[in-house]
Design a protein around this nucleic acid. Structure first.
Lengths: 215, 215
DNA sequence: CGCCTTCGCTTAACAGCGTTAAGTTGATCT
DNA sequence: AGATCAACTTAACGCTGTTAAGCGAAGGCG
């Protein structure tokens, strides 16, 4: 028999490391979480992790690739909306809600530079392998549908650019909140309200021509 | 005489520490810059810094308070535009340009959480002391002018909310670029173009009513 | 069966980090 | 002159991510 010995599950150690790391990262942040803490939670020593991941960066990257799918999953309900403009609106709101509900995970996925520096290939592969879980691809496809239906003005014919602009819009509103919410010198309004207002304004504005509105 | 001895300038050491720290932070990032490296650049030992700043966080915060004014300075040209809507557009473009030209400084100012956690009071004081250097205040004032002139639709009567939404819009576009520009699986468009397109769309959208555009 | 490789893990250790403690120097104040 | 204090030094601490070396059990193979 070439089955593994039944001391425990196949190679669940790698998966258990990822789970422990995710929990600690989400609860106390990435850089506040030490390799020793992750290992300690599993009852193993810190260097044991290095048998499964090259270093801390690789561990984080593996988590990022995995959890990018969670965002796409949060898009499920929004994707059922028929009208492409309405669908874009719902996708944007779902994005903001995802970020507000998982601020530390959001930080990990979208606000940590240098992190994805060496993982381009893996991310691309993960996206191509399961396109229904590629959040950016979902948005771009939706933009393409809106453009194809003639819903956008002449300045908004490039799906890539429009998708990037809309992503930037919602990402900015979420990440401002993540970074500055503790700053009381700004009278913060409810983030979901602000996001809804701005998404509607942007979508409305893109449905007009480039012509000036009445002053 | 109660004048200082003339061995060197009054207490320029503190200023020299800030300058060295800024240069290293901007060139290699905050966490890649060590206290020993900052001190070494001045020819002093690392603990010497602790006579001028409580810890690394305080050093960074002092730098943030100082350099927030640089952004306001970048707003100077845009503020000369008469029309409030046009002025908002130029402010947004200036913001994006500032971020793209100083990506590491931008990261330091606007993308580093926990950093400003204990510095609320100082930032607020710095803003109140020199309101013409309060970048957020400039934008909010401009939004108030646009609202006062009746340029915005009924859903956009709250200057604070509109200012936050517009800030989020430009911040998102800049920070996506800072974090994801190295990711080649996205066909990035020119950031300034994307920003201009989206700023115009949002401003246009806010100038309409909340009514639906023609499908 | 006995050897021997390989895997998964251990303990020990290293270099580097931010930071603190204790001592030294030199200018200033009384 | 003697005390004081700021500004700095060197030495060291505890922590980090990471590497080196070794150890025991599992499994293939003659």
């Amino acid at each position: 028999m070439n089955a593994r010995h039944a001391a425990s599950f196949p190679d669940d150690t790698r998966a258990r490391i990822l789970d422990a790391a995710r929990e600690l990262f989400v609860n106390q942040g990435v850089e506040a979480t030490t390799m020793r803490a992750i290992a300690g939670r599993l009852g193993v020593s810190a260097p044991a992790i290095y048998h499964h991941f090259a270093d801390k960066k690789a561990l984080i990257q593996a988590l990022v690739v995995t959890d990018l799918h969670r965002l796409a999953a949060a898009f499920a309900r929004a994707q059922r909306v028929r009208d492409p403009i309405e669908r874009l609106r719902e996708l944007g709101l779902a994005y903001v809600q995802f970020g507000l509900e998982n601020p530390q995970l959001y930080r990990l996925l979208f606000m940590t530079p240098d992190l994805k520096a060496g993982a381009e290939e893996e991310i691309k592969e993960a996206m191509d392998a399961t396109p229904e879980q590629d959040a950016y691809g979902i948005v771009r496809t939706c933009v393409e549908a809106a453009i194809g239906a003639g819903r956008f003005g002449p300045r908004h014919r490039d799906p890539e650019q429009v998708a990037q602009a809309l992503w930037g819009l919602v990402h900015g509103i979420v990440s401002l909140q993540v970074v500055f919410s503790c700053q009381a010198w700004i009278e913060w309004r409810d983030t979901m309200d602000t996001a809804a207002m701005m998404i509607d304004a942007a979508l409305n504005g893109m449905q007009q021509d480039g012509s000036e509105p009445a002053p």
